[in-house]
Write a protein that binds this DNA or RNA. Structure first.
Lengths: 200, 200
DNA sequence: ACCTGAACACCGTTCAAGT
DNA sequence: ACCTGAACACCGTTCAAGT
């Protein structure tokens, strides 16, 4: 670690994104101010404007980073279970829940609707779409293996994504009764929710 | 009751909640500041502190109001379809999607996780729990009618709520591909998602 | 008891200026 | 090109004071 700050930061843009992610993990969404992000990255509060048009733009970059990390995690789970289509779907879905539980503030930002005009952020759209496409692929694999009923894979993918995302969202909002969570784990709730979809 | 003071409001507390709901509908979450709420209610920016401990507390009240409205809408849909359990479930779920689509900002606040300590807001917990209990009742009705498979109603209720909530959340975040939405409506996506749950 | 106005620390954003 | 420091409007919150 350099004792003296170089006047120019090497890659301030990514350093700001990293700082934002760290603040989210530490202080949550409430602590995510542009000025705190700049402070943590070691620059003045106006410096981020050299790389981001506004706070929305930084949040878009942080969200995009989140979708890329999510994809890494989901793809790893899918790859580790490529031998059994049914288990591949279950474990990939479980990885989605794990991601939400491990970094709830980051997950919330990704889906918090703070971004009003996501059309303005093509990397965001691309990164989030890649996750959807992964689900479609897994659904198609399950269909080919006779584990999921045939039909338009896109529709089934949305159904499954909605179920898994809904579980993650309700869990983060503490909307799942604790009386229920004392009896069953989130994983069991997930398995129970997805079981009904399978052919047999 | 003593005669009304000349000051201003009779029931500032509810006027502030109403003002907040109106701002959400008009300007979205970004416009929801305590000062703007006070301005719209016709009082000074410090007046809300006579009725709410802080901004979180006002947001809790606005969220609670949202859960009560949601319950009204869901209960009305359930009551209008009490003759057919299967349709009752479908139409009540559809009412949930409609609520989210009609007042997206209010819906988002309810589930935005802005509330960190919902334990501190018992009316909030009570209002949101009432909706969950309605779903459990509908599930039990469906089970009694042989429309849903037997088993713990709480678990199935969470599965269904997660699916419906996930659809609403993904739709509001525009995460459902427009190529898909050009082919099918949200209602059809919902029906497709719930169909798999039924016995036959 | 209910509300006002001044005050404070913090925030997003802009901009002239420095390297 | 990249960054700083001052400046501005806005925000949440507190508090002494007014009715």
């Amino acid at each position: 670690m350099p004792a003296k700050k170089t006047y120019h930061h090497g890659d301030l843009k990514n350093a700001l994104i990293r700082a934002g992610v760290e603040i989210l993990a530490g202080q949550g969404i409430g602590g995510l101010s542009l000025r705190q992000v700049a402070l943590r990255a070691g620059v003045s509060h106006a410096a981020p404007y050299a790389h981001f048009a506004d706070k929305q733009s930084l949040i878009a970059a942080i969200s995009t980073d989140g979708f890329r990390r999510l994809y890494e995690k989901l793809a790893a789970a899918a790859h580790a279970n490529s031998a059994d289509p049914r288990q591949q779907l279950l474990e990939t879905a479980n990885a989605y829940l794990e991601f939400a539980a491990e970094d709830p503030a980051h997950f919330k930002v990704m889906f918090s609707g703070i971004l009003e005009q996501e059309k303005d952020y093509p990397e965001f759209v691309e990164a989030s779409q890649k996750n959807y496409e992964l689900v479609v692929e897994i659904v198609q694999t399950c269909q080919s293996a006779g584990v999921l009923p045939l039909g338009p894979a896109e529709r089934t993918a949305i159904s499954i994504w909605a179920t898994v995302h809904g579980l993650a969202a309700l869990a983060l909002e503490r909307q799942i009764p604790h009386t229920l969570l004392e009896q069953v784990s989130m994983r069991e709730l997930l398995l129970h929710s997805l079981e009904t979809l399978f052919v047999s």
